[in-house]
């Protein structure tokens, strides 16, 4: 699995401001990779471009071993005409019923399966939304703040479980939580504002798993490296 970008430039139509300028990077292998940077630096624009890059053949994005790319974000909603549990039943392929049950357990959503989406808290809504993506066929799943509003402890449990259950898939995790990105991700693409003329760079994260022991000095070094990259 490889995701490569060689000199990507992007500006919205009728705007002279570049959102992404001369972006070069490569990410290899399955696992959790991250896109990090301050607000407004173009993380979501990049994620959307990547999710639909096949519709724009002129974009300098190349992939190998990656078929289906899905993009999930934290403002998505499920239709409100039936309970969230019924929605999950409908969109879950027949051969993934066990996975669905396991994910519901890990994401701690069992008690709210009978509720409508609008009745859930924001954290529950985001977890519910992420489950339905994880049940689909994908090779690369972009998680754009998909675990926002979820408490830190549960977020950590979810991230470690997803890494373990989907170890053969590639994830691109977009978050503003530096500690989390540094600790759980493999490659961290640090985006910088085009106006600052500082090239975006890849920083290697700690890529912790369930059995890893937290190495604080190494984590501090990674966080420092990320912070100094923008």
């Amino acid at each position: 699995m490889r995701l490569e970008c060689s000199g990507l430039n992007f500006a919205y139509p009728e705007s002279e401001t570049m959102v992404i300028q001369d972006l070069w990077f490569a990410m290899d292998g399955p696992g959790f990779h991250a896109v990090f940077g301050p607000s407004g630096v173009g993380k979501t624009s990049f994620a959307k471009l990547l999710a639909n890059y096949r519709d724009r053949p002129q974009l300098p994005i190349q992939t190998s071993g990656i078929g289906t790319i899905l993009y999930s974000y934290n403002l998505e909603r499920l239709p409100g005409w039936s309970s969230t549990g019924r929605h999950l039943d409908r969109i879950c392929p027949a051969d993934r019923q066990d996975l669905k049950k396991e994910l519901i357990d890990i994401f701690q959503l069992g008690p709210v399966l009978g509720a409508r989406f609008s009745q859930l808290s924001m954290g529950q809504q985001n977890r519910m939304n992420l489950i339905r993506y994880l049940l689909q066929d994908f090779d690369l799943l972009i998680l754009d703040e998909s675990l926002a509003n979820v408490d830190e402890k549960l977020r950590q449990t979810i991230l470690l479980a997803v890494k373990e259950l989907f170890s053969h898939k590639m994830f691109l995790y977009i978050s503003h939580n530096l500690m989390e990105v540094a600790r759980f991700c493999k490659d961290i693409l640090v985006l910088t504002e085009p106006s600052r003329e500082k090239p975006s760079k890849i920083v290697s994260g700690q890529d912790d798993t369930r059995i890893s022991v937290l190495e604080k000095p190494s984590l501090d070094r990674i966080m420092l490296e990320v912070m100094s990259a923008f």
């Binding site: 993009y71 939304n129 993506y133």
Partner: peptide, 11 residues
């Protein structure tokens, strides 16, 4: 916000 999932997954 609702349609994205169904479009992305071909449903």
């Amino acid at each position: 916000d609702i349609e994205h999932f169904y479009i992305a997954t071909g449903r």
